[in-house]
Nucleic acid binder design. Sequence first.
DNA 1: TCAAAAGTGTTATCCTTACACCCATGT
DNA 2: ACATGGGTGTAAGGATAACACTTTTGA
Lengths: 323, 323
Amino acid sequence: MKRTASIEIGLNAAIVSVRDGQPHVLVTREGDQWDALPYGPFTPLDHRTLDSGLRDWVREQSGLELGYVEQLYTFGDRGRHARQGDAGPHIVSVGYLALIGEDPQAAHEGTSFGRWYAYLPWEDWRSGKPDILTQEIEPRLKHWATRHNLDETRIEALTRQERLRIWFAIGRDAHWDEEKVLERYELLYEAGLVAEAKRDGREATSDWDDFPQLGRPMRFDHRRILATAISRLRGKLKYRPVIFELLTDSFTLFELQKTVEAISGHHLHKQNFRRLVENGGLVEPTGDVSTQTGGRPAKLFRFRREVLMERPSIGVRMKAGRN
Amino acid sequence: MKRTASIEIGLNAAIVSVRDGQPHVLVTREGDQWDALPYGPFTPLDHRTLDSGLRDWVREQSGLELGYVEQLYTFGDRGRHARQGDAGPHIVSVGYLALIGEDPQAAHEGTSFGRWYAYLPWEDWRSGKPDILTQEIEPRLKHWATRHNLDETRIEALTRQERLRIWFAIGRDAHWDEEKVLERYELLYEAGLVAEAKRDGREATSDWDDFPQLGRPMRFDHRRILATAISRLRGKLKYRPVIFELLTDSFTLFELQKTVEAISGHHLHKQNFRRLVENGGLVEPTGDVSTQTGGRPAKLFRFRREVLMERPSIGVRMKAGRN
DNA sequence: TCAAAAGTGTTATCCTTACACCCATGT
DNA sequence: ACATGGGTGTAAGGATAACACTTTTGA
């Protein structure tokens, strides 16, 4: 028998909602502390399953009743919850992604929806490449890549240069892969360029005081969980019709497009997007029109739930485009 | 503060290897017990991370040194590890998928590689639809679907009929989705058609004694973890070049095709498969040929590791075919 | 010689992309 | 009138699937 130590299982939820064309995540703010995702310990006596435990915590902390919920990943790094030299129980945390369609009315005091791209501003390419990449991130990462590039202790590990190329599109023929959100955040952490790295006692690339704030930080490793959620959601969009979990029952194609753009972080080509969606059999017209569009009234559509039973895997395929 | 209860975190690995065209998973057999996946508790004092804990347990139990490892899912249902009325600590288990390329020599005493399709025989469509589906499973599932179909307590839940259609391709226009391995296993469990359901004290569709063995059962919920691993691997094949983790450094296109077929569970069209692979830039000729093929000597290929840095997502695309 | 697997070539079809253009409404 | 978003048509290009066929080895 091995030695045992007290373990606690933490449940964390990244609860996503799109409003006014911006993706948001539910956060709790306690005083001047950093924003946190809703979380709480899993206690088997109170919770039948991990899922139901999560729903209980979210209900208690925010008043929200969750619909679509999906497990993301279980994080178990030693000391991930601890500040330097801190003791205390070891915590393994199970991260979840939840999606909310209707505009959630009044959540509890102390909770609110924070914009994704306030936490991860380099992920929003809807109006082109974000300035923070060119001006702040790229020069610092390039500098970091030149400093002792010889930490390749493991064989077959990617070099710093290579990681910049595939994850940050720095270098020739490189291109931005919108799904690599987690990899980018973890690289910034490793390079000591986010506030959490300083908090956790990691070495910085240069003086911390010179640093701009690269995105709003979060408590514990919650920004990592948010990054995981975004990665998963951006990937899943392409092969599962999850986007409709973020919309009301009926919607215009424009609203659908804006929601996909909000999540994927880049612009889409209007005409082709409409055709792909309509031909794909994902939606059907309700018969009504919306006159609130600022232009010609738009047909309203609803999601065809039957597709879940027709095609094994179907999503909103699309490529970036100008129009 | 909530009540606390002792929690233990278990680590489980589905270690996959393809030999002689058959996919296998590493199991331990203790006496007349059911086969089990390698597993052990996560103890933070011994293990730095969940990953390293898993590698430690596998090394200890089987002597294998793992390469490619990927977290699958964390299972936390109350009582999932318990027999009826059993008490004891609550166990949350974290499932992993590991892939092994080289034919693994001598694993420890008591461990061996068991064939996937001995555990889940309905998943092997390489020689057409398996008889066990037509003869044993479908009639029993149809019967189950007619019995009190009114367990739709949740709104929006799929009916039994619908689930048979989308997951078991029973009904008109239905077609088999090879990725839905977990859904199928869980449905068989829910319908009381696998031995684990009896062991866990679930009600059967009819008398247990009448039942054929629907696949070889496993300890605890290990067959569910295996099903999760297969689902994930079959899905991932299509957008990541993971298949090469299951092959030796150089291989013929025929070996590659047989390996993909072993994993995906269906036959592929030879000519088109070869073209897709060669044109896709996934592989490059080594210059050597293999004369051990039983026919004309075949060019040997190797995986182009550079693609990991070129394309964001690339896999072995293919459709079922006759040839 | 035959079986078995390695390979090549060609076509029809579908899907995607890109471009051009017109429609209906509110201000 | 014009801005805004809604909506249609079409043609080029690429990828896929299905088919037919030739080549090289071992038994």
